[in-house]
């Protein structure tokens, strides 16, 4: 599971879908692996528009990274040198950081999901369906 994906998923329990607490999930006991991927700065700057930045910062913190700016980097231009460094860092974080194993839990209902062999499992037990 890419770090990127943590920005797209929330708790699958119906009562949590609209809860502000449920997103992002809380990441614990995670085993991370860096996996090299082709770098396209335009792809990252385009992707950035779709992201909930607060959740990126939160999940990075869960995983032990406190270095992200509190607000979303704006106006990144892949041609500018300053921007390039930021985009490259974001690429490393979002696209190349894989969560291979770990737990994701909902801050609203407390349910725990597992990431196994890089694939997150959102299947629910019967009493939560």
């Amino acid at each position: 599971m890419k770090f990127l994906t943590t920005n797209f998923v929330t708790c699958a329990v119906k009562g949590c879908l609209s809860s502000l607490e449920a997103f992002p999930l809380k990441y614990e006991d995670c085993q991370l692996v860096q996996e090299e991927t082709e770098y396209k700065p335009e792809f990252i700057s385009h992707m950035l528009e779709r992201l909930e930045w607060n959740a990126i910062v939160q999940v990075a913190k869960d995983l032990g990274n406190d270095s992200l700016p509190a607000t979303k980097p704006e106006g990144l231009d892949p041609i500018m040198e300053d921007s390039q460094a930021v985009l490259k860092d974001l690429h490393t974080l979002l696209m190349e950081t894989q969560i291979v194993e770990g737990k994701m839990s909902c801050r609203n209902c407390g349910h725990v999901y597992h990431i196994k062999n890089s694939i997150p499992n959102f299947l629910l037990p019967p009493h939560l369906c």
């Binding site: 797209f8 699958a12 779709r50």
Partner: peptide, 23 residues
């Protein structure tokens, strides 16, 4: 096209975990 690939999730479509605000 690996850059275009986000992820696959084990998920029951009827109990969907994709956040509502995701376009």
């Amino acid at each position: 096209t690996s850059l275009q690939f986000v992820d696959v999730l084990t998920m029951d479509f009827t109990n969907n975990a994709l956040r509502q605000s995701l376009c």
